[in-house]
């Protein structure tokens, strides 16, 4: 459906979010989202002045949602870079070199695959000072193993290709084999996995912030939802405090998923 209808909808959606995140500070004056200096009355429904209403501190929910994308994306992207980098490196090592070392790496990966994300993040939040670090670590540590497994399967498929035997016969070292043959062949898989990991990372960041495990000084979608829950916006029936960040999150995650699917479905033009 996504492929046939609007193939670029996913990437366009992701690009829109990135643009918003970059431009938000230019559109919204600094300090407007400080609860102390908020200008509006608390919990007003959507109006001309506040298109998406205000929260219990009198801040514009529209501005909160726009600004919230910054932190959610930043944490998500950083965690994904860590997870995909580590996962792909481990996968290349275990898939290319194999042997007893590879078997040990595979067991380590399996151990991390079954690590439950939420309890681990809560435990980490309890040990480390609240802030960006425990969130980042929790997402990266629980995501890299999944990336490693998928990429390893792709590496093994490439390793069995006769052209790698040919390259070994040429006298090529491991660096040459990996850089010129294995890595380019698994790159589409890595990219598609990265897009899915990114979706999951943003979702997890929101979850953790909603649970109050995020950085309390930053505005993110999770923290907006958290504030709404603890300050009584939910019980007051202020739906406008919940829907905008929630929908923004859903659309972004769907955008990532569609992008991953698009990357996975692009037939490499150079291969028959």
């Amino acid at each position: 459906m996504i492929r046939r209808g609007l193939p670029l909808l996913g990437p366009a959606c992701v690009a829109g979010y990135l643009l918003t995140a970059v431009l938000a500070p230019l559109l919204i004056p600094a300090g407007r989202l400080d609860p102390v200096r908020a200008t509006g009355p608390p919990l007003t429904p959507p109006s001309y002045r506040f298109p998406l209403g205000t929260d219990s501190a009198g801040r514009s929910v529209l501005e909160l949602t726009l600004c919230g994308s910054r932190w959610s994306l930043l944490i998500g992207v950083t965690a994904t870079v860590l997870a995909v980098g580590l996962g792909a490196a481990i996968a290349l090592a275990s898939g290319h070199f194999g042997g007893p070392g590879g078997a040990v790496l595979d067991r380590v990966v399996e151990w991390f695959v079954i690590l439950p994300q939420l309890p681990f993040a809560v435990a980490l939040g309890g040990v480390l000072a609240p802030g960006a670090l425990p969130v980042l670590l929790a997402i990266a540590v629980t995501s890299w193993a999944g990336v490693a497994r998928v990429v390893r399967a792709a590496v093994l498929a490439v390793e069995a290709e006769p052209y790698l035997e040919r390259v070994r016969a040429l006298g090529a070292g491991h660096v040459h084999q990996l850089r010129h043959h294995v890595l380019p062949a698994v790159r589409p898989v890595v990219l598609a996995t990265a897009s899915l990991t990114l979706a999951n990372a943003v979702l997890t960041e929101t979850t953790l912030s909603f649970l109050g495990l995020g950085d309390p000084t930053r505005v993110s979608w999770g923290s907006v939802l958290h504030d709404a829950a603890v300050t009584g916006a939910v019980t007051a029936g202020a739906w406008w405090c919940l829907l905008p960040p929630g929908l923004a999150l859903i659309v972004l995650v769907l955008g990532f998923e569609a992008s991953a699917r698009l990357i996975g479905s692009i037939p490499d033009g150079r291969v028959r």
């Binding site: 290709e161 006769p162 052209y163 035997e165 040919r166 390259v167 070994r168 016969a169 040429l170 006298g171 090529a172 070292g173 010129h180 043959h181 380019p184 062949a185 490499d268 150079r270 291969v271 028959r272």
Partner: peptide
């Protein structure tokens, strides 16, 4: 051995399609 491979003795492989990397 790595130095000898190809510079000393080279192989023409069978199955020419598979011995070439399709994306290069």
């Amino acid at each position: 051995l790595r130095a000898v491979r190809w510079a000393g003795a080279a192989i023409v492989f069978q199955g020419a399609l598979h011995a070439l990397n399709p994306i290069r």
